[in-house]
Design a protein around this nucleic acid. Structure first.
Length: 319
DNA sequence: GCCCAGGCCATTT
DNA sequence: AAATGGCATGGG
């Protein structure tokens, strides 16, 4: 039956996306809310519900109701979000030429650092400390479902199997989160991070902190401002700089990246403090160090996951 | 039960 | 300055 709310129920548009791997980008641990639906993914870009599917060098788009004004702008919004304008070949060519980096570059072909909304990125990464990627996805989902705005996506049967519609949720605004008690936030499995999330939400909501104003700051000043927020240290500040402020030099060092650096760049080096690692990462990986870092991170994590699966299968074999 | 996870923070040396 | 322990939660 025709949905009479809109003259045309669903408008599918296509855009060209060269040097881009959608699934790799969405699964690389930089963004946590996109979910598989049919042959593509559903999620939100800001307040817009979006369906996106990759077919070679073409992205098939849908999701937003037609003829909302945003829908006409959808191709531009999606292209900007996925940073299709980044000159990926040049960025990858700027990485250092060493065995580890070359393996990661080969493995992560088409991975782009996307442009995330600032508050959404900041809040999500405050929840990320001492959490596995799968858990961060759970937390993001819980926060959205409890406090976000539900939006319906009409899925064309031509492009999706199964259900013909689904619901996605926006990430809750700082204002929405600031209204809650810490106890309420803890229902989303954020644990001890609830206090930090709430305190930062209230700083942003009150206007004392304006994340958009900070875009004019230098890398050093931006990092310093971010680190003053509750629950934000050097690592999370660098993630937010990289994923929400397009500071492609920012090089977050988490436990995985630290392992990669120690094993492959400093074998047999004891007494290697974080300051020394930071110094090395900033000088060795160049002007797109953040990109290099994300390639190293995703490659290392994927290898670990793969070997975990192998161990599991080996155990099964033994029975 | 154990160990670990895209860390941060307060406290102690 | 540098090292240490606590912190919630869930998966392997």
């Amino acid at each position: 039956m025709l949905d009479t709310r809109y003259p045309i129920a669903m408008k599918i548009t296509e855009i060209c996306a060269r040097d881009f791997n959608l699934a790799m980008t969405l699964n690389s641990g930089q963004v946590f809310h996109w979910e598989k639906a049919g042959r593509g993914f559903v999620g939100t870009i800001g307040d817009l519900p979006v369906y996106v599917e990759q077919n070679g060098t073409v992205l098939i788009l849908g999701g937003a109701p037609w003829p909302a004004p945003e829908t006409r702008a959808l191709p531009r919004i999606v292209a900007h979000y996925f940073a299709l304008d980044h000159r990926l070949a040049e960025i990858c060519a700027s990485f250092p030429d060493d065995p580890v980096m070359n393996a990661a570059r080969l493995f992560c072909r088409g991975l782009r650092i996307i442009r995330q909304p600032r508050w959404e990125c900041l809040a999500t990464f405050i929840c990320s400390s001492m959490k596995q990627v799968a858990h961060i996805r759970q937390i993001s989902k819980a926060l959205r479902e409890r406090f976000g705005v539900a939006l319906k996506i009409d899925l064309s049967k031509d492009h999706c199997s199964g259900a013909d519609s689904c619901i996605v949720h926006t990430f809750p605004s700082a204002e929405r989160l600031a209204k809650n008690s810490e106890r309420e936030l803890r229902k989303c499995a954020v644990g001890y991070r609830a206090a930090h999330l709430l305190a930062t939400a209230r700083l942003v909501d009150s206007g004392e902190v304006d994340l958009d104003e900070w875009q004019v700051l230098s890398d050093t000043d931006l990092r310093q401002q971010l680190c003053e927020l509750p629950g934000v240290g050097a690592k999370i500040a660098n993630c937010v700089m990289l994923f929400a402020y397009e500071r492609l030099r920012a090089f977050p060092i988490d436990v995985w990246i630290e392992r990669v650096l120690r094993q492959h760049y400093f074998p047999r080096a004891r007494k290697l403090n974080t300051a020394r690692l930071r110094e090395f990462s900033e000088s060795h990986f160049g002007e797109h160090g953040g990109y290099a870092q994300q390639y190293l991170f995703h490659h290392a994590l994927s290898r670990a996951r793969k070997s975990a699966v192998s161990r599991k299968q080996a155990r099964k074999w033994q029975e």
